[in-house]
Amino acid sequence: MDKVIIVEGKTDRDQLLKVLNESVEILCSNGTLSYEKLEEWAEWLESSEIYLFVDADDSGNKLRKRITQEIPDVQHLYTHKMYREIATTPLDVLAEILEHAHFEVKKP
């Protein structure tokens, strides 16, 4: 089964790509989730293990709630509140979070 990570934006995706050591589809929501976007993502969402990794702020929390309503079995990943954003979370911390969720990560 393939793994998919939903993030808010391109910067988040770029940060994750720096630490991932396996092929993972990373989908950018750009802060919203519409019916059209879900349709666009349908092929990945139907046959994949889905993870949600959004910022620890109000917009991230709203998106997390919305996606959880649409995709109840999504698995949640969280950055530490002190970093607030995936883009500002140190790479070693991101690697630790992803490794804990059974992703292959690059070792520094």
Rank of each mutant, 00 (worst) to 15 (best):
M1R: 09
K3Y: 09
K3T: 02
V4W: 07
I5E: 05
I6P: 04
V7N: 01
V7Q: 00
G9C: 01
R13C: 09
R13T: 11
L17A: 05
L20P: 05
E22V: 13
V24N: 04
I26M: 08
L27R: 04
C28W: 07
G31D: 10
G31W: 03
L33T: 13
Y35D: 14
K37N: 09
E39Y: 05
E43T: 13
W44A: 12
L45I: 03
L45D: 13
E46H: 08
E46T: 13
S47Y: 13
S48C: 12
S48K: 01
Y51N: 08
F53E: 03
F53S: 02
F53Y: 01
A56C: 11
D57K: 09
D58P: 12
D58Q: 15
G60H: 03
G60W: 06
G60A: 07
N61L: 03
R64P: 05
R64C: 14
R64H: 00
R66H: 14
I67S: 03
E70K: 08
V74K: 04
V74W: 02
V74T: 04
Q75V: 13
Q75Y: 08
L77N: 00
H80V: 04
M82L: 13
M82S: 14
R84F: 04
R84H: 11
R84D: 10
R84C: 13
E85P: 10
A87F: 00
V93P: 03
L94S: 01
E96M: 12
I97N: 05
H100M: 10
H100E: 15
A101C: 10
H102I: 12
P108N: 02
P108D: 11
P108Y: 08
